[in-house]
Simulated scan of single mutants.
Amino acid sequence: MDKNAINIVYLGSEKRLFDWIWRYFDIVGALAALILSGPLFLLIALLIKLEDPAGPIIFSQPRVGKNGQIFKIYKFRSMAVDAEKRLAELKHRNEMDGRMFKIKDDPRITKTGKWLRKTSLDEFPQFWNILKGEMSFVGPRPPLVTEYDQYTAVEKQRLAVRPGCTGLWQVSGRNSLNFDEMVSLDLEYIQRRSLLLNIKIILLTFREFSNKGNGM
């Protein structure tokens, strides 16, 4: 992707209407998910505490949301308590470029955390972020503040909408794609977003979730 290209994200009236309608889907879905997942939340909390009694159950971290607004994202803690401090020593293993950090077999991940990440259950507390209006079920993933600070003007356009738990990038290759491909897919989603596309992305996400559960 040409970082110097002018790429104006389309936010016409019909897209604003869709965003308003989809917000109601987010509210109802998040409420239902929080209620139905209650027993599972308790089990996960117990497993986290049994492995590391001194550490917190929920991990929160500042992320950048719609239009550059900073909010705290919530996850079940899947890493050691000192994970943030150990980040510097792992920078050389980064498999993405400097604007995004991702490595395979991260040594900071706990045993319970590996299971949570494999099944994506570590993301479930983000239903609260959705309910608060900071996130949506579908949208670009919210970057770290340090990552966002390195974005170009074009790359910042991927946050013209609420960030999401899943999105076009996540169901189009995810870890096999580089940063520029992720940005291109996010901008494509913003321009194409619709009820049909969101439902398709959610169904594809469930399929990937099911495949993970079957060890595929």
Rank of each mutant, 00 (worst) to 15 (best):
F41W: 13
F71K: 01
A45L: 05
S136I: 01
F127W: 11
M216L: 11
K15C: 01
I103P: 09
L196Q: 02
F18I: 03
D97A: 12
G12A: 07
G29F: 03
L177A: 05
K156H: 05
S176E: 15
P163I: 00
T110M: 09
L43K: 01
L11G: 12
A160V: 00
L11I: 11
S184V: 02
S184G: 01
R192M: 10
I130P: 07
I44R: 03
A33E: 09
L131S: 05
A32F: 09
D52H: 05
Q170K: 05
I202A: 03
F101D: 12
R207T: 02
G133H: 04
R93L: 15
L34D: 13
V145R: 09
L144C: 06
D26Y: 07
K85P: 00
Q126D: 11
S176I: 08
M135H: 09
V145W: 02
K3T: 15
L197M: 15
E89T: 15
G113L: 11
N7V: 08
K75D: 10
I199G: 06
I8K: 14
L43E: 03
F41P: 10
L90F: 08
E134L: 07
R86M: 14
A33M: 07
V154E: 09
L131N: 04
A5T: 05
M216C: 10
L177P: 02
A30P: 02
K15I: 14
I190A: 12
V138F: 01
V183S: 04
S13Q: 13
R193S: 06
I27S: 04
T205W: 01
L87P: 00
L159S: 05
L204T: 00
I27P: 07
S184K: 11
L185C: 08
G133I: 08
G98V: 14
E95Q: 14
I6M: 11
D19C: 08
K212S: 11
K85V: 12
W128E: 01
S13N: 12
E155L: 06
E51V: 14
M216Q: 14
I8Q: 12
T166K: 01
W169T: 09
